[in-house]
Design a protein around this nucleic acid. Structure first.
Length: 669
DNA sequence: ATCTGTAGCGCC
DNA sequence: AAAGGGCGCTACAGAT
């Protein structure tokens, strides 16, 4: 039965009711299906129209204008709320100072159960159809704003809460089957925090940002002029604009410098090699990306000018005027949208929230090292600031993924490095892969063997992400053989890493998913596992390789069009799985550590009644940004560090994760 | 005029 | 045999 509170109705199976009756009905129950209808996505500028509470027997649709949601605060705080995409509804509750404690988010349930498969639709309707024969009519969505509490609006609003308990039950059974309940618990806890982060937003100093744009425009024009003048000075007539302008006798060029296609053509004519391997077809393609050109910096003086231009262009486009439009008129702050569960469990930021464009707040350019900063130059992160009477607490884990890596691989030398607090990691790897540095103190390596250290840094990085000798050679512009040597000496130096790599790959190939760790048991399902198994079956069939070698010798059509593509795709898929198996557990477990840290911080804020005082402007993978009144700075700094290290201790039992926080007046990281 | 895919590059 | 993990945004280029 559907009940409406706040409007007199009498339709078939729809009755009028009262708040008291509704509260009475749910007081004996532990969980409530919950949903809201609003005028839009932003809690600061939009309003709550109705809220619905329901289970499989009864649903209550309440007119929020007549009955402000605060009157059921007690219910919302005490019961388990089952919500599809809770972040949206929670934001409106937070806006009314209601902070529920127990959430089951059926949307996140789907994300946990189908992590790795983007093709799975996770909306409420799609979710319901996955588990039951029921389906929803979503065409009504948004109509409530226009037509009010009509019969069809009431029916569909009620329907959204009717099946949530059922979906939850199906999800629990699936989650248990895959041993994913702890992973789900983590996400259900974290969604409350992520809501708070989005709700908090981050303040952008508008004037400073505007000055930054002016500065970028000036730099941009200068490098653009430099580019064009170089063409004119070198009299590359093909690219010089010959069209006369009666009012302007300065020459210009016909090149659109932000077009890679056009720049490729020019650079080729200057003898610059633009060929890079094309992953898609195994052949080659043209590219003028920075890492291709940097290796050929001596080939033409135009290269450094072009690279500088590209940098300025980026600062002016992605980090230019559009950012100012993202400032919320009500709060004066930028409120992004986070996606809570990507394939590795990491967050992402940006995209559209309804018809509202948000921005990625996780890729704002970093401040250069202090020594490299230019006096008076305005850097992006300097423009992100706390409110007048506040300070930022900016904290990050030192070497989060590296430390998780050491704990996961259990490599004795890596562990020894951290345990003895030897100092610089890259110097340590250098000492392991260069025999001549075996007995040189790490401090000396860092200062005197910069080249070796750089090689070690690049090699360690590539290997962590599943790269190999070829990757190393390519990165460092070395011969293939040298890259191979470095690769091999790395594994010789760290046998535990090699062992771990083998085990991780074997597990993934066996199970068809990547197991992140034994604490949360989080998993990413390999969406293309069946495709891999098909190819595996082919290459493992009796006599396949004999046939392959034979046909290869003949270079037959069978080889060219069947055997070769099969083998190629087999190794390609296997390589992909292998790299996922190496990287996902490190990246995914690290993200869980950060999520738990954020939960601790959030709970501290909530337990100490600081929701109106402390803000949580951002989280960037291994880094958190808090905002609090100046006088609380020292306390919050310690709290944040403590929360982060406590979270780290859950996952990193051998080598602990250390967190460092600082108090600052802008995003100083 | 509007949509889609790609190249390139910002962050961790 | 192929050859570095995870994201999102902006410009261009080609298509509709």
């Amino acid at each position: 039965m559907i009940y409406v509170i706040g409007n007199e109705v009498n339709y078939i199976n729809i009755r009028s009711s009262t708040i008291e009756d509704m509260v009475d009905y749910f007081s004996g129950k532990d969980e409530i299906g919950f949903d809201t209808e609003t005028t839009g996505f932003d809690p600061y500028t939009c309003n709550l129209l109705s809220y619905q509470l329901g289970d499989s027997h009864n649903q209550f649709v309440v007119d929020a204008n007549q009955y402000p949601i605060n009157i059921i605060e007690d219910l919302l705080k005490k019961k388990l709320l089952i919500i599809h995409n809770a972040k949206f509804d929670l934001k409106f509750l937070y806006h009314n100072d209601i902070y529920p404690t127990r959430i089951w988010d059926t949307y996140l349930g789907e994300c946990v159960l189908h992590k790795g498969d983007k093709s799975v639709r996770k909306g409420l309707d799609a979710t319901l159809s996955r588990y039951t024969i029921y389906s929803l009519n979503k065409s009504i969505r948004g109509v409530i704003h226009r037509e009010g509490f009509t019969e069809r609006v009431i029916r569909y609003a009620a329907e959204d809460t009717e099946y949530l308990g059922l979906i939850k039950a199906f999800q629990i059974s699936k989650l248990k089957q895959y041993d994913l309940m702890r992973s789900m618990d983590l996400e259900n806890e974290f969604v409350k925090v992520l809501t708070f982060i989005e709700y908090s937003g981050i303040k952008l100093d508008k004037d400073l940002w505007t000055r930054k744009i002016i500065q970028n425009e000036k730099d941009y024009k200068e490098s653009l002029d430099e580019l064009n003048n170089w063409i004119i000075d070198n009299n590359l007539v093909k690219y010089i604009d010959t069209q006369l302008d009666l009012f302007d006798d300065t020459k210009s060029t016909t090149i659109s410098w932000s077009s890679p296609t056009q720049v490729v053509e020019l650079f080729k004519s200057l003898g610059i090699n633009t060929q890079v391997p094309d992953e898609k077809n195994g052949g080659f393609k043209d590219s003028v990306e920075a890492n291709v050109l940097e290796k050929q910096i001596d080939k033409s003086p135009i290269i450094p000018i072009y690279l500088k231009y590209k940098q300025q262009e980026k600062l002016l486009s992605t980090y230019g005027k559009a950012v100012l439009d993202k400032i919320n008129p009500a709060t004066g702050r930028i409120h992004t949208q986070f996606t809570q569960i990507m394939d590795t469990g990491r967050l992402s930021s940006g995209g559209k929230m309804g018809d509202q464009e948000t921005m990625n707040i996780q890729n704002i350019p970093r401040l250069p090292d202090k020594d490299d900063r230019i006096d008076g130059y305005i850097y992006e992160r300097e423009c992100f600031v706390p409110e007048e009477s506040n300070v930022f607490i900016n904290a990050d884990y030192s070497g989060q993924e590296q430390v998780v890596f050491a704990n996961w691989t259990k490599d004795p030398d890596l562990i020894a490095f951290y345990k003895s607090n030897l100092g610089d990691m890259h110097s340590f790897i250098a000492s392991k892969i260069f025999p001549k540095l075996k007995d040189v103190p790490l401090k000396r390596i860092k200062e005197e063997y910069k080249e070796e250290r750089q090689i070690a840094k690049s090699a360690g990085f590539a290997i962590n992400y599943g790269g190999d000798g070829n990757t190393i050679a390519d990165n460092l512009n070395l011969p293939k053989e040298r890259g191979e040597e470095i690769y091999n000496s790395y594994f010789k130096a760290f046998p535990g890493v090699s062992e771990y790599f083998k085990k991780a790959t074997a597990q993934a190939l066996r199970d068809g998913y990547i197991l992140f760790n034994d604490i949360s048991k989080s998993k990413c399902f390999i969406s293309f596992i069946n495709k891999y198994r098909e190819k595996e079956k082919i290459v493992n069939s009796p006599g396949f390789w004999e046939k392959y070698r034979e046909e290869k010798k003949l270079n037959s059509d069978l080889y060219k069009y069947t055997l070769k593509p099969d083998v190629s795709s087999y190794f390609k898929l296997r390589g992909n799985i292998s790299r996922m198996a190496l990287n996902y557990p490190i990246q995914g477990s690290s993200s869980e550590v950060t999520k738990i840290a954020c939960i601790h911080i959030y709970n501290y804020i909530l337990d100490n009644d600081l929701m109106d005082v402390v803000k949580f402007p951002n989280v960037i993978h291994d880094e958190v940004l808090l905002e609090c009144p100046k006088h609380m700075g020292e306390t919050m700094k310690k709290i944040v560090e403590d929360c982060m290290e406590r979270a780290g201790n859950v996952y990193c039992k051998i080598v602990p994760l250390k967190a460092e926080a600082s108090i600052c007046n802008f995003w100083n990281h």
